[in-house]
Computed example of a mutant assay.
Amino acid sequence: MHGPASPGWLLVALCAATGAYCLLRMRSADEGQRRAAGGEALMGFGMAVMAVPAAVFTPPRWAWAAYAAVFGAAALRALWAARSGAHHLHHLVGASAMVYMAVVMAASSASPRAGAGHTHGGGSGVPFLTGVLLLYFATYVLVSGVRLLPVGGGAAGGVAWGDRPELVRACRLSMGIGMLAMLLTM
C-alpha cells in the first residue's frame, strides 16, 4: 500500500494479530463459528501482507494477480455461503474489496508514473468504487463499535474465550478499521 511506513507497520500488526486470533477461533466447537473464523483469518493475514509498506517490500507484478485470484475465490465462497446468513454478505464485500485493491495496485505498479493507476485517467478525487467501499467500511466500523458498548450485566460464564461474542465483534471491528485504513491509503 502507498503511505508512510510507521502507520503501515501498525496496520500490519493489527491485521496479523486479528488473523492469529481468528485462527484460534477455528478451534471452536460451533461449526458456523469455525467457518466464519477461517474466512476472517484469511482476510486478516491477507490484509497484513498487503499492508506491508512499499518502501520495505514491493511485491512482483504477478503477486497482485495471485491476491486477486485468492480473494476472488473467497468472494465466490462468501457469495455461496450468503444463502444461509447475512454476515457472509460482509465477507463478500470484504473479499471483493481485496480483489479491487489488488487490481488497483497491479495497475499502479504497471504504470510508469507512481500512483497514476488509481486516478483512472488522470482525473482528481477518489474513484467511485473506492468511495463506495470507504462509505461501507466507515459505516461498518461505526455500527460495530456501537455493538461493543456494554448494555447489561450478561456475564460470559462458561463460554470459551474464543467464542465470546464481544471478542468476535472486536476482531471484526479491527478488520473493518484495517480495511478502511487500506482504502484511505490507496
Rank of each mutant, 00 (worst) to 15 (best):
H2Y: 04
A5H: 11
S6W: 15
S6C: 10
P7R: 05
A13F: 09
L14P: 06
C15E: 09
A16R: 05
A17C: 12
T18S: 13
T18D: 03
Y21G: 02
G32N: 09
G32S: 07
A36Y: 08
G38M: 07
M43L: 12
G44I: 03
G46R: 01
M47E: 01
M50F: 13
V52E: 00
T58H: 14
W62G: 12
A65R: 11
A69C: 06
V70R: 07
F71D: 01
G72N: 04
A75N: 04
R77P: 02
A78E: 02
A78W: 00
G85L: 09
L89Y: 11
L92E: 03
L92Y: 06
V93F: 06
G94P: 03
S96Y: 00
V103L: 13
A107G: 03
S108W: 12
P112W: 09
A114G: 12
G121Y: 01
G123K: 14
P127N: 02
L129A: 15
G131N: 03
V132D: 10
L133I: 11
L134C: 06
V141R: 00
V143D: 08
V151K: 09
G153N: 15
G154Y: 13
G154K: 15
A156Y: 15
G158M: 13
W161C: 04
W161D: 07
V168E: 10
R169I: 05
L184Q: 08
L184I: 09
M186P: 00
